[in-house]
Write a protein that binds this DNA or RNA. Structure first.
Length: 422
RNA sequence: GGAGAGGUGGCUGAGUGGUUGAAAGCGCUCCCCUGCUAAGGGAGUAUGUGGUAAUACCGCAUCGAGGGUUCGAAUCCCUCCCUCUCCGCCA
């Protein structure tokens, strides 16, 4: 959530910043909501104060054996006034909060201007794009050829956009997860963490998936609680420290977590219908950092480099782009995407999105740290390190041979019991 | 899932309708005393939020969460969550 003081004192500045990402902040609507809030809140609190006072008077009078009937009838009137004031305040508050919760994060000044993914700034291209003396197959074909993927059976037992991995492909998925976790814990200093895959509403509200992206979530059928399957490990991991004041000595906290991710992806039908690029369920190794505001810019560079390292070790060709103002996510202030080369599409495709949320999430989550006796909001960052399904697709496509077999990257072979070819 | 007991400030722990935002103790901070140490004396010590330029002052909220009863709820009623003990079931 956005800084309320800034919105109150400097709405024009906020509006200008949000306009860059195509969000039109309605200042007059905001000001009306804010004025109403103030009026209703003051009214309600004054009313409450009156009631508290007279309730005490009644208590005293009763103790002194005085007649309390007059006071009581007065109190009844105040009580109903208060009820009325509370209702008005509550009604306004729902609208007020809804307005605030749907405002995206402010952009970092370094974010390039642009309308769509085409305007993203390419910062780096790394690795050799392999040239084939045959027409390269896509990963779906390769997976099926290796008797490693079954799309039809997955659709039978579930529905479309699910997949079954078998044999060496299933093993490769497991090897990738293991390799990524080991690299981040052993080489990059992350703490491994295993978390729930089903979370409550507050958690999704905290990281920003709710209320705006409810359609993208899988909600669990639970009468008592509003529960959801996680769309990313970012949700449970970041929420781990919700409502905490962290010791500055312990910052930066760096977590790595492997989880499946569940996305309903409403509205994306027609996109990537073939293959495993866009599934309702996929594996991901996620990096999450919680840090002091002064350190978050540096930590974003670090986190991105840690994710890049995986691509380098796997020898996959990729590029690093900085998302432009029109393409960046709702809660992010600055995002680097890592995109891997997919020969079948002759395109770079997103495989990791590394973002600095700054205090956007921690304001909702109430994650703070002490600084010279006062409390400051921490900054949160996250990025995939990496999306396992897409990594696998990239491996299949980039390291395929004319026969349809696939060379397994050297760093993975120890995790594949020495297997070299798929 | 069944039965029972509980959820109060940084911690321990009192408090079953009315100056209780909350006794007492511990811890912590400051001051005094003391040659040093130990001990002792005194004062202070939750968070959020609103009115505000304000870390001044005042108000409001918060005793697991949400409703309800009442002029008034930590205290009574309902629902839910969580913890502990026993039983059942399981991985």
């Amino acid at each position: 959530m956005i800084d309320l003081d800034l919105l109150r004192n400097n709405p024009e500045e906020v509006k200008a910043n949000l306009a860059l990402r195509g969000y039109d902040l309605n200042i007059s609507q905001w000001q009306t909501l804010e004025e109403n809030r103030k009026v209703f809140q003051v009214k309600m609190e004054n009313s409450q104060a009156k009631q508290n006072k007279i309730a005490k008077e009644i208590g005293l009078a009763q103790k002194n054996k005085e007649n309390i009937e007059d006071l009581k009838s007065k109190a009844t009137k105040i009580s109903s006034e208060l009820k009325d004031a509370k209702n008005k305040f509550q009604t306004n508050k729902i609208e007020y909060e809804d307005f605030l919760l749907n405002i995206p994060n402010l952009l970092d000044p370094s974010v390039p201007l642009g309308k769509s993914a085409e305007d993203n700034e390419v910062l780096k291209e790394a690795g050799m794009i392999s040239s084939f003396d045959f027409t390269p197959r896509d990963h779906q074909e390769l997976g099926i050829l290796a008797d490693g993927m079954d799309f039809e059976a997955a659709t039978k037992i579930s529905k479309s956009r699910f997949v079954i991995f078998k044999n060496s492909v299933a093993k490769l998925s497991r090897a990738l997860i293991q390799f990524m976790l080991n690299t981040h814990t052993n080489e990059h200093g992350y703490q491994e963490i295993y978390v729930p895959y089903i979370v409550n509403k507050d958690s999704l509200l905290g990281t920003g998936q709710l209320p705006k992206f409810k359609e993208d979530q899988f909600q669990i059928n639970d009468d008592e609680n509003e529960m959801y399957l996680i769309p990313t490990a970012e949700v449970p991991v970041t929420n781990y420290h919700r409502d905490e004041i962290l010791n500055s000595k312990d910052l930066t906290l760096s977590y790595v977590s492997h989880t499946p991710c569940f996305r309903s992806e409403a509205g994306s039908y027609g996109l990537d219908t073939k293959g495993i690029i866009r599934q309702h369920q996929f594996e991901k190794v996620e990096l999450v950092k919680i840090t002091h505001p002064d350190k978050s810019s540096h930590e974003l560079e670090q986190l991105t480099a840690d994710a890049e390292k995986i691509l380098e070790l796997l020898e996959l060709p990729y590029r690093k782009v900085k998302l432009c103002s029109g393409d960046i996510g709702f809660g992010s202030s600055i995002t680097y995407d890592l995109e891997v080369w997919l020969p079948s599409q002759k395109k770079y495709r997103e495989i990791s999105s590394c973002s600095n949320y700054k205090d956007f999430q921690t304001r909702r989550l109430k994650i703070r740290t002490e600084e010279k006796g006062s409390k400051v909001l921490c900054h949160t960052l996250n990025g995939s390190g990496l999306a396992v399904g897409r990594t696998m697709a990239a491996i299949l496509e980039n390291f395929q041979e004319k026969s349809g077999s696939v060379q397994i990257p050297k760093v993975l072979r120890p995790y594949m019991d020495g297997q070299e070819v798929l």
